[in-house]
Design a protein around this nucleic acid. Structure first.
Lengths: 233, 233
DNA sequence: TTAGTTTATCTGGTATACCAGATATATTAT
DNA sequence: ATAATATATCTGGTATACCAGATAAACTAA
């Protein structure tokens, strides 16, 4: 049981705060302010920033500072393209090595997700977490650590984006049992089909999110340019 | 013309040193020693380490220190799987938007690579650089920044690995005009075929490297466990 | 009043110093 | 000689302090 370093602890906390949507996209994160808030010093904050940059949640510009990622359409699409490639590959690998027990676990999780999407329009947090769990379980079953790491990053970025920009997921209702169908195609054991299905899943998700995005983005801009001028708390 | 920060400069230099094979896989990089060598302080060295960790060239273990990545077969295969997925996706996108001018540039570069592989068995550095340029040009033509970033990282990791573990590329002779054929399949404009070809290119490359790896790895182990005990310079 | 200039106050970047833990070395007791 | 203990010396982690540049505020001169 080794003690956690200040960097790791602060990283956990700030990461959670960012993903949960506490900061606006584009918002500036002065190192002294962050240090003060978490009871650490600037040097510790700087190392935390480096880790969050790796996660694709903030951007560090030398001689300028740190700001929460503010994704334009092109950037967001780029991340979805990477996600499509990697999650597709994960689905392919899982399809090749699936067994009946894992298949059952996946089906169970997928049906939970689909059920939540139909019933629960209030508690978005639980739903998003469950959806994240499903995608991560598929990734993990691939057995490829690098795939898991990358896919986790991309899904956390999605959660962050979802918590800062969008709020509505009603378009899911048009795709009943979407995730169950996805998982079924994986556990059938045909790698090509599994990969194609996962790719489609990611791609269609992006397009639907986009149409949603265009609506909410214009009605309530949450972007702040330049440095923060007033207190954030 | 803005001045470069010490972190950026040191990052460039240390990155180049690592990729060029100056350090052994598994070798420890004490922050004070690195700081002394580059004429910086430990705090600057630590930030450089964070960036190199992001590049997949070193590993930072809290409370322990930094060491050059020492990839076992499973880890190496994982990176190749990611590379296969991403470069395959890049080839797909390029195939969809290729024009005659870009096609000509790609063919020219590919033929240079193939020619080098046949003729030049002395100057490996130039060859590897040219091979890197080809893969990067394909990635860049995809127009997707995230793909470019990830593919660049993976190819630099490959160069690092190549410069530290392997030395011989003679197996390329068995695949005459390999890269030219790859590029041709891309510029034909069939996305499915382009992606399949690029995937095969990466996958076969990995397997051939592996058989080579097994030979050289056993005959000359270059791994150092634990901390560095004697001077490195 | 307004334009120009100085001054105060932010920001990130970085050197110094010190702490705590781990490891190796020396020393002492048996 | 060997085992146990103490000590010196590594290591990474982190707080403090200060510098330089950029920006904003205030003041002065027209």
């Amino acid at each position: 049981m080794k003690s956690e370093t200040l960097i790791e602890k602060g990283y956990r906390n700030l990461k959670k705060a960012i993903i949960s949507g506490e900061f606006c996209p584009g918002q500036s994160l002065p190192q002294r302010r962050i240090a003060e808030r978490f009871g650490i010093t600037t040097i510790t904050a700087r190392e935390i920033f480096r880790k969050l940059e790796h996660d694709g949640l903030i951007e560090i510009e030398p001689k300028w500072g740190v700001k929460i990622c503010d994704l334009d359409i092109a950037e967001l699409e780029g991340r979805y393209i990477v996600r499509e490639a990697l999650e597709g590959m994960a689905a392919r690998i899982v399809a090749k090595k699936i067994n009946s027990q894992k298949a059952e676990e996946l089906i169970k999780l997928a049906s939970e997700v689909d059920k939540k999407f139909e019933s629960d329009r209030i508690n978005q947090v639980n739903l998003i977490k469950l959806h994240y769990d499903l995608h991560m379980k598929i990734a993990i079953e691939s057995g490829c650590r690098k795939l898991v790491e990358n896919i986790e990053r991309l899904n956390l970025q999605y959660m962050f984006w979802h918590n800062t920009v969008k709020v509505d997921n009603s378009w899911h209702k048009k795709n009943r049992n979407w995730h169950t169908r996805l998982v079924k195609s994986i556990i059938e054991g045909d790698p090509d089909k599994a990969e194609a299905m996962m790719r489609k899943h990611v791609r269609v998700g992006f397009k639907l999110e986009m149409s949603e995005f265009n609506l909410t983005k214009t009605s309530s801009p949450s972007v702040i340019d330049g440095k923060l001028t007033e207190e954030s708390r």
